[in-house]
Design a protein around this nucleic acid. Sequence first.
DNA 1: TCGTTATTATCTATCAGTAGATACACAGGT
DNA 2: ACCTGTGTATCTACTGATAGATAATAACGA
Lengths: 181, 181
Amino acid sequence: MSKKQLLLKAAEAKVRTGGYNNFSFRELADEIGIKSSSVHYHFPTKADLGAELARQYTDNFLTNLGAPEALIAQGKKPIEVYLQQFQCALTEDKKMCLCGLLGAETDGLPEKVKTQTQRFFVQNIEWLTHAYMQTDGASEHTAKGQAIAALSLLEGAMLVSKAMNDTAIFTTASAGLLATR
Amino acid sequence: MSKKQLLLKAAEAKVRTGGYNNFSFRELADEIGIKSSSVHYHFPTKADLGAELARQYTDNFLTNLGAPEALIAQGKKPIEVYLQQFQCALTEDKKMCLCGLLGAETDGLPEKVKTQTQRFFVQNIEWLTHAYMQTDGASEHTAKGQAIAALSLLEGAMLVSKAMNDTAIFTTASAGLLATR
DNA sequence: TCGTTATTATCTATCAGTAGATACACAGGT
DNA sequence: ACCTGTGTATCTACTGATAGATAATAACGA
């Protein structure tokens, strides 16, 4: 794994713990055994690092999911898979969603970080909209409403679980999503 | 309004914009026209300020709501009032919920700030649990589940609305809460 | 093949600015 | 005399960022 990726990995942990202002170039550099000036070689500014972080997080998130159509073809329910991906982020990493945290502090972020954070939400709503259109046969408008509600519930469930330090909260909060309709 | 309250007010705006690490004693001091050393007179450490901020926010939030019983006595639906209080925080202040943001970055906070942040969620879940028990006649266990789901949905709806910079998202996301059951 | 040039990734050293925090002085009101 | 609130001055530590040197590797032309 390249130093650049190691930097991003270290930064992700920091940001998911305490937000964009919770890491410094020196901390990251120390963690992977280089000097802070070398971090600037890979990322000219902190905003560049933050933007790349959000970009990769979004891409990995969606790649790991796969397309809703593909999941259905495998006999899986997209919403269940989606919920589980959120749950894993919370229980395995024991951390908040990166873009959830960045989204909450969006007005305090550099422009390019904000833009990449928004992209996470846009793409997730698109994914969920397609999923609902196919499983429920809903209209695009209806499905988009369901998508926004589902995304909000899951981000909020993570947030409340973290705040209360109790992963059972996530399960309770998200139970309604799986109800057969 | 006392300097102490002015400091808290200024700090609230900063934290709700970019999290706990998004304000400094100097910034607050400059805003209200005193020196940073004088801020330490009112709040010995930054953690003290943060904790007091979360404490007052929680108290004000619950005071403004009133007890669920009292709302019912006035012919109001507690969940509707509760939802509207969240919506006002978002649309009037144009900011994220203070404790929502602090909750998301809980693992990066000083202990006493974390404790006060948790208190917000504990008390809100209690409030909602009572509300659901009375309006739905649900058991305490069932009502607590509804409470956790409602709180998660609303915090998440705020977060996604902020991230997407679109308050209509909040309305869409929270619409399901008002459905007559 | 050999020598030259370019690129990549790191280093040392340093900068101006800001962070939270402290010691101590001072004024005004009780 | 004391308490409250503020100010001056200062400390150490850390921030993101830059300049310039260095070593290692890759690419290229004669």
